[in-house]
Nucleic acid binder design. Structure first.
Lengths: 259, 259
DNA sequence: GGAACGCGTTCAGTATACGGAACGCGTTCA
DNA sequence: TGAACGCGTTCCGTATACTGAACGCGTTCC
């Protein structure tokens, strides 16, 4: 799930601001409480600077301490901004009825996600009502190269752009995950041709996903997918899901044409 | 939904860190895109300082700009940390089975929330399966004084502590909302006595909620509630819900005794 | 058409936040 | 038992990030 850290270069940055968000991302990446020394060795900031920074964030409620006051973790205040991103997003708002309809038509789990660096971020989900269903949550990040959503989005970039986004070797999540960037790029050509992507248990064993990009900007930023346990899949059902996805894509294209 | 800004006083703070989170909270509070000048007049920072800060946060993906690059809004990266707070929380994890069971027993909307200043923050919800149901989302904030959750939590504080947390005049959300702090404090005495709180359409017209605090620390930090449209309420059903809540409280007390 | 505005951007002097080193304190060994 | 460690905390000189003023550019208004 390599979090990209874009543009370290390029002009002077406000140091404490960089550290503030790096610190928040550190805590977010490792739930639970952490000592100052632990954070210090991980991030490499001087102890005293880190101490002041932590004290400030604790006072603001963005970082919390345990009863002893010496172990730190992410605070309640951080919740606020994350959900606001979703609430204010025009694409999420415009996609709502289409997602509902897609969920009804397929009765399977539906995702709307956005490409951020080499990851996709879930913006909205509709849970399958079946007992057997994938676990997901808004805000979750997954590698683009192992998901149908990510592959559908990467396919709207040129091969060279994809080479800039992804490293040469890709981290495997299952035995089916593409681990070679160039092999993945060949697959992207196929995706462009037929208009949708498929994830054959590349992210989760037992789960097949179908993804399609929303073309309101190029390269595309958002995509929708439908995830189905292989146990429930038949050729006929697969065709049905593909049709529903294409129809959803057309509706979404209309709903987002003003963006 | 007065966001508390605790402890402005007390020791030197890292200025850029304070501004960073204030800026994020600003964007979170006003979804959509905003010009530099607009933010500048609202927050009162010098233009040039704000400019540098924004540029830094844009590079890091925590703030996004529109196509022109001159209008700013909250970025994808902010999503990450918010959801992490929930994922890492021991109370949320420990409460999961109890919430599921409570949702099944009552078939109504269930909330787990935490007190933060004068607000409550939703940490987990179980949606009612009925067609008529309240709209909620994890991360949402509501005033403590107008919710059963908030009142159940405030009741575990002493009257003087409540006077420190709440202002004298309370903002009304419906015609039933308590607007006088001292009147609310009288109600809190009643809540302590009977062990649970009731919100009689004080937050949303047509909705009655029952709340109960989880006593794993004093004063309590978290509470659970059950929200029911008045149209579906009968005396017998109300009794049933109260019983289920008390049972849930006992289960949660057990599940959180190690915290 | 030109002057005045509004807005984003740059610059340089200076207030200030950073960071290396020292301190205090509790814990762990020999 | 006392010396050595680990960890959080404080201190002070200095590197540096902040800010007020100036700039450039597009738009508005007379």
């Amino acid at each position: 799930m390599a979090l990209p850290t874009p543009a370290d270069a390029g002009g002077s940055q406000v140091k404490s601001a960089v550290r503030t968000v790096e610190l928040l991302e550190y805590f977010a990446g490792r739930p639970g409480m952490h000592s100052l020394a632990e954070v210090q060795t991980s991030l490499g900031y001087p102890k005293s600077s880190l101490y002041m920074l932590l004290r400030t964030l604790v006072e603001l409620g963005w970082v919390e301490t345990d009863a002893t006051g010496t172990r730190y973790g992410i605070g309640v205040r951080a919740l606020l901004v994350g959900t606001a991103y979703i609430d204010g997003d025009e694409v999420v708002a415009a996609a709502r009825p289409t997602l509902d309809r897609l969920a009804e038509e397929t009765t399977e789990t539906i995702h709307l996600a956005r490409l951020d660096g080499a990851d996709v971020v879930y913006l909205a989900t509709r849970q399958s009502q079946h007992y057997l269903r994938p676990f997901t949550r808004v805000g979750r990040r997954l590698p683009a190269h192992s998901t149908s959503l990510g592959k559908a989005l990467l396919a709207t970039h040129s091969d060279d752009e994809v080479r800039k986004i992804l490293p040469e070797r890709l981290a495997p999540l299952t035995e089916h995950t593409f681990t070679d960037r160039e092999e993945l790029i060949e697959e992207l050509a196929l995706i462009r041709e037929r208009g949708y992507s498929v994830d054959h248990e590349e992210n989760t064993v037992g789960l097949r996903c179908f993804g399609i990009a929303i073309p309101y900007r190029t390269p595309a930023r958002d995509a929708v997918s439908c995830s189905v346990p292989v146990a429930r899949l038949t050729p006929g059902r697969e065709q049905q899901i593909r049709d529903a996805l294409f129809e959803a894509r057309d509706r979404l294209t209309l709903a987002t044409r003003h963006l």
